[in-house]
Amino acid sequence: MENLALLWGIIGPGVAGAVFGAGWWFWVDAVVCSSVQVSFLHYLPGIFASLAALMFNAVNKDEIGYDYYSPYGDDSEWRVKLWLFVAYVVSFVCLAGSVGMLVQDALTDKGPSVWTGVAGVLQCVLVLISGLIYWTCHSED
């Protein structure tokens, strides 16, 4: 079991990069194969999902542990958790926005096709999953 964790620490960042790339390439496929022009509004969930993945990986994981001791008092931990909460809110809004655009694409005939909405949801999900993969496998040193 320890060997598996060690192997995950070695291979995990590469897997996270591959999942991130797969998410964005799904969106490239949807834009390229779309028969109508995709407006910039549809790009925003993917961009903000990438930003959210970057936000919660910018945190030093040691600062949110239960055994963390700070000589400067207890007021440094809530800032890190507030930052993580903001990253969570951005992730939630991205997923909700992409699902909303999927439903809108499915209901109307004039806009982009359903595959554009599906690819948008896939993009957000894969980008956020790559952030979580990177979170679980990288270690502070």
Binding site: A16, A18, W25, V32
Partner: peptide
């Protein structure tokens, strides 16, 4: 991370 993201493009471009 960047190596994984770049390598995925070599699979994605022919598929697209």
């Amino acid at each position: 991370f960047l190596t994984g993201a770049s390598a995925m493009g070599s699979i994605a471009i022919p598929a697209i």
